[in-house]
Write a protein that binds this DNA or RNA. Structure first.
Lengths: 171, 171
DNA sequence: CTGATACGGAACCAATCGGTCTATAATTAC
DNA sequence: GTAATTATAGACCGATTGGTTCCGTATCAG
């Protein structure tokens, strides 16, 4: 084919994600995004088509770079295998970031207005709940309390979301 | 003095609060706000001075109309006196609203960008934490576990915030 | 009745919003 | 080398943003 893209898609996505994370979907204007990404309007619209599509791509990027490793840790994969479920869960609530969590911020914000984004965010949160369930089940014998685990995971997800949201007010 | 205000400040605040609640600070434009409030630009700026000041006034209105009664309930005042602390706490997690909680939405959103709003939101959340503490202490003997109550109240606040945020993705 | 006040309504403002378009440059296949 | 293809930069678009200013008028105290 013809002329290849001159910018690093992943690096641009990383920069856009950071801005959406800090300022939210509506708070991050096109001009700010382009500035942070170091590209021009034409390139953005050629690559992603719209601000909303870019945002959805950022949610994917966020999943890949931050959520997935976190979920693997919770499930006890890799070096986390040496830790108990409770220890892995405790580690999650050590992670402080004044920006909170992109998924949680989006849930409280734009997800209440846009159905596509709401659906995408819900998916992400469901994945986190699943990993919480895995970590909880790891410390409990047999299938004795499958329902209890699901219920506790739901509460844990709620606490996690609140935990991350709370950090945005503490600066 | 002279000519009195022709519109009901409280009713206008109620309408503005509803819009901010549903769409967030940045999602609610002046045109939408004025339309919902049934007043004109001039009146809004004469009465509140700016969009941000209006928003802060809406947070106060929200406190007065919804938070305060909720806190009184948690503290066991009025007809809630017949309920145990645990029963009062359980009732709080029954309240479903697809708009979530204005305080929590603001924490996850605009509070991360504006310091004045962040401060105001933090205050509101601290008040909720205090009421959780009161409800928890009500079920526990003496001052045996004051620190434990504070810690549990913090976790309860986190779960509450996540609980309300979550509802914005479930529509 | 009169003068002071400040209201409601609308015109108006610069700046920004998300998005499109075109001219140019770079790269490929042939 | 040439033609086809695609990305780039940036000018440009109408609409909307939050905010100001003005005017005619209603309402007050004296």
């Amino acid at each position: 084919m013809a002329r290849p893209r001159a910018f690093d898609t992943d690096a641009a996505l990383e920069a856009a994600t950071a801005l959406f994370w800090e300022r939210g979907y509506e708070g991050a204007g096109l001009a700010d995004l382009l500035d942070a990404m170091g590209i021009q309007r034409g390139s953005l619209y050629k690559a992603w088509g719209s601000k909303k599509a870019l945002f959805l791509a950022c949610l994917d990027h966020y999943d890949r770079r931050l959520v997935d490793p976190g979920l693997a840790f919770l499930r006890g994969e890799g070096e986390a295998a040496a830790l108990s479920g409770a220890e892995r869960l405790a580690a999650v609530f050590e992670n402080h970031d004044p920006r909170g969590c992109l998924l949680c911020n989006s849930a409280a914000g734009i997800a209440g207005v846009d159905d596509d984004i709401a659906h995408r965010v819900k998916e992400g949160l469901d994945r986190i709940r699943g990993a919480f369930e895995a970590a909880l089940a790891d410390d409990r014998p047999g299938a004795e309390s499958a329902a209890g685990v699901a219920e506790d995971a739901e509460r844990l997800l709620q606490r996690y979301m609140g935990f991350r949201v709370q950090q945005r007010t503490e600066r």
